[in-house]
Amino acid sequence: MGARSFGAVALAVVVAGLAVTRVLDNQYYYFAGYVVLQYVVLATAWNILGGYTGYVNFGTPAFFALGAYTAVVLIQSLKAPLAIQLVAGAIISGLLGLALGYLTLRLRGVFFSIATLALAVVLQTMFINWEYTGGARGITLVRPASAPLFGNYVQFLFVVMLGLAVLAVATAWWIERSWIGRGLTAIRDNEEAAECMGVPTLRLKLVATTVSGVLMGLAGAPFPYYVTFVEPTSVFDLNYAVNSLAMPMIGGSTTWIGPVIGAVLLGTAQQIATVTISSALNLLLVGLILVAFVILAPEGIVGLVQRLARRSGERTRRSGV
């Protein structure tokens, strides 16, 4: 997709989102849509490091929660507006991403992944013991009653998350097409060969971990106002780690559209399952779908479609002769 058509689609998505807030009144759809969009951001962010660069991060909850708790602190101390919460959450989580990038100097493969898991556990323990943000009990926040131009604050948050999703996807789209993306692919394929072919592997990995961290922090920052009650167990939920990994894997991890497809399908399925069956089943649902994909279509939906298209193309060519 060229830059112009990508920009047009992005604009259309935002306009459509705004239009919806003018006609649709049922609050449930905004609550559910927000969660799906939040997963678009998380899955896209995860994929920049996991899919493009090949470093599997189990620590999504750490970055998400850091964004959320940064917002909590700013609300508690300064009553800072949402824009400030977003910027601060992005910076703090981005710094954590940068630190994680330096870890790739020493840790590769499964050892890196285990370290990211440990990172989430350590941060969770810290927040459990930090009274200022409510400790283990959690903290209740008062959501502003309304937002200018939007009236309803939840509708406003929905549109904000839509904007963040567009920002995240545009970032991934750009990286994929740039020299950075080609370098990241070389790192994923063979880091030693990449370095020997002139790719500054450390610098590119720092870019990937930082950008990924920034986007995850952005996803977490509006969360306190969305739920109005933040506790360690909910922001450090295993769901974030599993979903942000499973969604790109199911959609297809080599291209920007893969995580979007995965997040929309799986995120929507989970929202429906939560209403119709129970929320406890979500993780089981994701697990089963993930296992099925890893076995049957390891390149995800995008890869599957490409493979089928290629095959039918060959068949037409053969029957045409």
Binding site: W179, G183, A193, G198, V199
Partner: peptide
């Protein structure tokens, strides 16, 4: 300084031509 690897380390997700484009683009 450029070297070849005794045990080949190609960029496996890329085509042969794309493999060459990496050093062309990155070696300055």
């Amino acid at each position: 300084i450029a070297r070849s690897f005794q045990i080949p380390k190609p960029f496996t997700s890329m085509t042969v031509l794309q493999n060459l484009m990496i050093p062309i683009e990155y070696a300055g």
